[in-house]
Write a protein that binds this DNA or RNA. Sequence first.
DNA 1: CGATTTCCGACCGATCTAGTCGGGAATCAT
DNA 2: ATGATTCCCGACTAGATCGGTCGGAAATCG
Lengths: 144, 144
Amino acid sequence: MTISRKAEYALRAMTLLAGAPPDRPMLIQELAETGGIPLKFLEQILLTLKRGGLLRSKRGVGGGYHLDKPARQIAIADIIALIDGGLCALAPAETDDAPEFTGARGLRAALADIDALVNGQLRAVSLEDVLQRDTPDAMLAFGI
Amino acid sequence: MTISRKAEYALRAMTLLAGAPPDRPMLIQELAETGGIPLKFLEQILLTLKRGGLLRSKRGVGGGYHLDKPARQIAIADIIALIDGGLCALAPAETDDAPEFTGARGLRAALADIDALVNGQLRAVSLEDVLQRDTPDAMLAFGI
DNA sequence: CGATTTCCGACCGATCTAGTCGGGAATCAT
DNA sequence: ATGATTCCCGACTAGATCGGTCGGAAATCG
């Protein structure tokens, strides 16, 4: 029940890109080394992130990857959804063969509630928020 | 990223047991049929639930399963933790080889926050709450 | 004893995870 | 045009996990 390593790598790479100077793109190799991510695996990940519209790339010398929109407009939900193919869903696949017994509706409702809670939060936190959380004074501001 | 089918089955069985009359235990077969759960699979599940201290069992005629404590004192977190071996954790396995880069702390903090949120909620909802949620008037009370 | 019911370890096919491999295609400087 | 650089992309794989199944042993009761 942990987040997939692939999604974790994607989050690292996106965080790295969000925190990088916007004038020049970053190389896959750069991202892999800094983020501690297997190079060829990261290649795949960045590709799907790009196909999903979160990244833009350029080949050749001086090429690399950069965000396709400002960090504020990219939620970590967007990243996880692209990589894992759907968000974290506690509620099991909807309208399946679910039998009806006393308490069944209540169970589904309770799970759906929590599901909505976590997904809402994932959607609410942007890459910019992640960077903000990184600075020590932000920790102080939050009283940690 | 869905809840495991095994955990879903466990939740169904526990909900069933929480809603059953407390005078006699329920048979595995009964639970399997009512809950739409493969019998032999359910056997395993109930066994680990019992070893975890959530259930009590009795063999032979008149035997079966029943809750080991009142439904109010059993959180769905307890059930999922026993079955899936740990709760839903978005934050990756702690203190692993996590590299340090700009934003890494923020990323971990953001994930840990959401993690705490969902786990807190899972711990807050008991089987009794699940049963309450099942009745239509409870829905009205919640303004649904 | 024999019926009932839980207990328990071993096993199994399909799918998913976490990658690797090898080469192709675009871009750029010279 | 050539060659270096860098991204693009499909195929492949070892190992783990998922979702069960099977066969029987042990307890409990009439």
